[in-house]
């Protein structure tokens, strides 16, 4: 069935890091880009973990029932956008705290996804195919590492587009002003609330699509342990990336690669301290959060209206 695969030895490490960055970074990337837009507008949606799970579940379900994985991605995005809309509207009410709403969305989304996804655990839905960028290589390892999913490419394009959109377009400027100073935005005639709601809807859409990547491509199956906190890590990642889309891209690649380190080391026979290696991405998150939330330091690049950083 398979030709004999030569062992890679230590070459396995760089390849695993590369492959991990490509395979595992997409959910981080999509969720963080979406959250980046939401936070730039002055809102924080901590509920993206729940949105991610709902997206993963809805995407898998839609793919299963329609037979098309891409319709699954679309369904995931729509479900995510709907949750984003709900979050956006609720947070626009007076005296509603977006952090509290976010946490409740996190619980609601995961709980609902578990409940509705019960019947989706066993069946095999059609999954997304990838583009074989490794065709030039004879090595099956490199061929496998360079199986690139279109959603990953889409994420990269989106990161670049958003980077320029924030800097150069009227649309980007409007989001930034709304996020930096509500008064200034009002003075300029921008409508603050609709802008924020739209930004949250967009963030929800991307988080939903990020979820569908998990269930429809990698690891490519719906289960309740699917996210293991990736939605939360992506929110932390936005802070780490200083609300910069391009930095979100690098940070996502870093997180994806970090997750691959533990298994890669162990596959090579280096298994002592595997708990520590497996904890690496979470340690990274923690370190980032500690470094960025020193109380006596203002975070550079933070949107002024963000409740997370507002004094």
């Amino acid at each position: 069935m398979t030709e004999v695969t030569e062992s890679l030895g230590w070459w396995g490490l760089p390849i695993a890091i590369l492959a991990g960055a490509i395979r595992a970074s997409t959910p981080f990337l999509l969720v963080s880009l979406g959250e980046c837009i939401t936070e730039k507008s002055g809102r924080i949606n901590l509920g993206l973990e729940g949105v991610l799970m709902m997206g993963a579940m809805a995407g898998y379900g839609a793919s299963l029932y329609t037979g098309s994985a891409w319709l699954g991605v679309l369904a995931a995005g729509v479900v995510g956008a709907a949750l984003g809309l709900l979050h956006g509207i609720l947070c626009s009410l007076k005296r509603v705290n977006d952090i509290a709403i976010g946490i409740s969305f996190m619980l609601l989304g995961t709980g609902l996804a578990f409940f509705l996804g019960k019947s989706l655990i066993q069946p095999q839905a059609p999954t997304l195919s990838s583009i074989p960028f490794g065709f030039w290589s004879d090595s099956p390892q490199i061929q496998s590492a360079l199986q690139i999913n279109p959603l990953f490419l889409l994420g990269i394009v989106l990161a670049v587009l958003l980077h320029f959109a924030f800097l150069r377009t009227r649309w980007g400027l409007r989001i930034r002003i709304v996020g930096d100073s509500e008064d200034a935005a009002r003075a300029m005639g921008f409508r603050v609330v609709p802008t924020r709601i739209m930004a949250t809807v967009f963030g929800g859409f991307l988080a939903g699509v990020g979820g569908s990547f998990l269930s429809l491509y990698y690891p490519g199956s719906w289960s309740e342990g699917l996210s293991s906190g990736q939605g939360i890590m992506a929110v932390a990642l936005v802070i780490f990336a200083r609300w910069e889309p391009l930095r979100c891209l690098w940070a996502s690649l870093l997180f994806g690669a970090a997750g691959a380190l533990g298994p890669a080391f162990q596959a090579m026979g280096l298994t002592s301290g595997f708990y520590l290696l497996n904890a690496l991405p979470y340690v990274l998150t923690l370190v980032i959060l500690i470094l960025t939330t020193a109380p006596n330091r203002k975070i550079s690049g933070a949107p002024g209206e963000l409740s997370l950083v507002r004094q």
Binding site: G20, R23, A24, L214, Y218, P219, G220, S221, S223, E224, G225, L226, S228, Q230, G259, A260, G262, P263, A264, Q266, A267, N278
Partner: peptide, 9 residues
Amino acid sequence: SMPVKEAES
């Protein structure tokens, strides 16, 4: 249960 890590492994 760690699906992503299991796939990576």
